[in-house]
Simulated scan of single mutants.
Amino acid sequence: MLTHTPENQRLVDLLQRVSLQDHAAFKQLYDLTSAHLYGVAMRFVRQRELADEILQDAFINVWQQAGSYAATLSTPMTWLITIVRNKSLDRLRKGKLESDNTSSFEDNSPDQYQEEVMEHADPHDLFAAATEKIEVTRCLSQLDAPQRQSLALAYYNGLSHSELAEQLQVPLGTAKAWIRRGLDRLKKCLEQASLAPQGK
């Protein structure tokens, strides 16, 4: 499992409150994370105005999708950085500002990206995240294709339910059902993995 720190737990608690439309929690979350997330956006777009817009779009997404955050999959900062990263790449594509460096970002393996987003983590955090990633990948492979695709788009690409429905060309209710059932099955699989005897 991912390392539990007071900082992580505070962000987890704030995201849970944001999912209930708690404006005070949203402001606290913004105050605690926006500076770092702005820096992430700047690394991609290199323009302050664009980085400001990306940060705003990302936090709109967070407000709408906080309920989809699953603490068993990643730390809150990794989830937030993933949203900013994908918003940045979307903006680069739309603005035709791609460069060779941008292409290399998009082509990075999950391990390379994990190293990027956790560059300031301590070794225990990195080991825990790597171990968790193995279990998540295994459990994702056991899901039905629609559930797996829906979770990937919603969680890693930061799509809202309505954006997901549009992307997959299915009714909104169907998209929500795929996400809900996929998360339920993923949670059960990860819980079983955490209870399994070690070293087998």
Rank of each mutant, 00 (worst) to 15 (best):
E49A: 07
Y156L: 11
D90E: 13
P76S: 10
S74A: 11
I83K: 09
I179R: 03
D22N: 14
S88E: 00
P197N: 02
M1H: 06
T78C: 08
D184N: 14
A58F: 02
Y155S: 11
Q142D: 10
D111T: 13
V12C: 12
I83H: 01
L14W: 10
S160T: 15
S194Y: 07
L97G: 01
R46C: 01
Y30R: 07
R43P: 01
A24T: 14
K187M: 01
L164W: 09
D22S: 12
H23V: 15
S141D: 12
Y30D: 03
K94T: 03
F127Q: 13
N86L: 00
A145M: 09
A130T: 04
R185C: 04
L92Q: 03
R85H: 05
L20M: 13
L195I: 01
R48I: 01
D22I: 14
D13Q: 15
D100Q: 05
R85I: 02
R10P: 10
C139M: 04
K133S: 14
E135T: 09
A128Y: 04
T78D: 15
A24E: 13
C189S: 11
L11Y: 08
S104P: 00
A41R: 01
N86W: 04
Q47I: 02
S141Q: 12
L89P: 00
D125L: 06
Q167F: 07
F44W: 05
A129I: 02
L50S: 02
H4I: 15
Y38K: 02
S162N: 10
Q149H: 09
A58P: 05
G199H: 06
S109C: 10
T33G: 04
L195D: 08
M42D: 00
Q169S: 12
K87P: 03
P123N: 09
F105R: 12
E53K: 11
L143G: 05
A130F: 05
L190E: 02
D13I: 11
D184K: 15
T82I: 00
R181V: 03
E49W: 02
Y30L: 10
H36A: 06
L97Q: 09
D111V: 12
W79L: 08
A70T: 02
M118Y: 05
T82D: 14
L151Y: 04
N108S: 14
Q9G: 01
Y156W: 13
V40A: 08
L195G: 00
G95P: 01
S19Q: 12
S109P: 09
A175C: 10
L80I: 07
D184E: 13
V117R: 15
L2C: 00
Y113A: 07
P76I: 10
G39D: 00
E49Y: 00
L80S: 07
Q21A: 15
E98H: 01
R46W: 03
A51G: 04
R93H: 03
D100Y: 01
L89H: 01
L190C: 04
P110A: 15
E53I: 04
P110D: 13
L14I: 13
E163G: 12
W63C: 05
D13G: 08
D31P: 00
L172C: 07
E166I: 10
L97K: 06
N8E: 07
R17K: 12
R17H: 08
S109L: 11
